[in-house]
Amino acid sequence: MIAGSKLEKVIRSGQFAVTGELGPPKSADLTMLKQHGEALRNHVEAFNITDNQTAIVRTSSIACGAVLVQMGLEPIIQITVRDRNRIGIQGDVLGAVALGIKNILCLSGDHQKFGNEQQAKGVYDIDSMQLLDGLRKLRDEGRFIGGDKVGAPVSYYLGAVANPFADPFEYRVDRLEKKIAAGASFIQTQCIFDLARFKKWMELVRERGLHKKVAIMGGVTPIKSLGAARYMKNNVSGIIIPDEIITRLQGAKKKKEEGLKIAIETIQQLKEIEGVAGVHVMAIAWEEVVPEIVERAGLYPRPKL
């Protein structure tokens, strides 16, 4: 055991893990965030807390994470390299640990061009790989990135993201391998709609035995409407939405129910793929539907530890 988080325990027990995601608000009023956390309490092991997602200013992920800890819920703090340099990030990581946060997810973050402070200076002092590697060394070797000694040992469960739908496709497995070497214990993938491509990626992952070295959690997002699907297909880079998903939603009378069904079927298929250790359900702005998805996908009740 590294940090002894609930997420780590479920993964280590070999049971299929489920994580959710909560997006901090553009205000300091965390009422909704707390409500969603409460509503999902028994349906997920832990909650990703996004870090100024899509480069839009929001309450900080660590602050929201600390609030979840107070509620007896488990956060996975997302840390991007867009807004802070290595000094700020490492300081915040120590702060997060002090506040009882046990899971950290390293990523680069959406470019500031997509957000509400488009004239901001992007920091990018380090990249997501270096962040992962640096936080691993901070924990395992007790050294900051610059080499100075950390005052007292810290512990956290480290994760990273993978996007099997980005290009070049062949590189995506290399990149996963590199993230494992850098220190990832768990991986959450980009939202999966193109299952064929995901399966192909997993085949390559298994060929190298990488699924035994890291817990791969498939990303699942329920689509609320045909418009949302079209928008993601055409405007969100790094996501592939196959035409059959669009056709299916087009043909459906109840779009929301169809969107849910697609998500549930995706989870059921992911459960059958060798090497998939869990799912990460991202239902941003549709959090209330997560318990239903988890239950209908046959993932409820969650393991008791």
């Binding site: 680069s108 470019h111 990249d127 997501s128 993978a162 996007n163 070049p168 980009q190 880079s237």
Partner: peptide, 10 residues
């Protein structure tokens, strides 16, 4: 993003 370990997921 001036990354040294790429390409990223975007």
């Amino acid at each position: 993003k001036s990354i040294l370990n790429g390409p990223c997921g975007g």
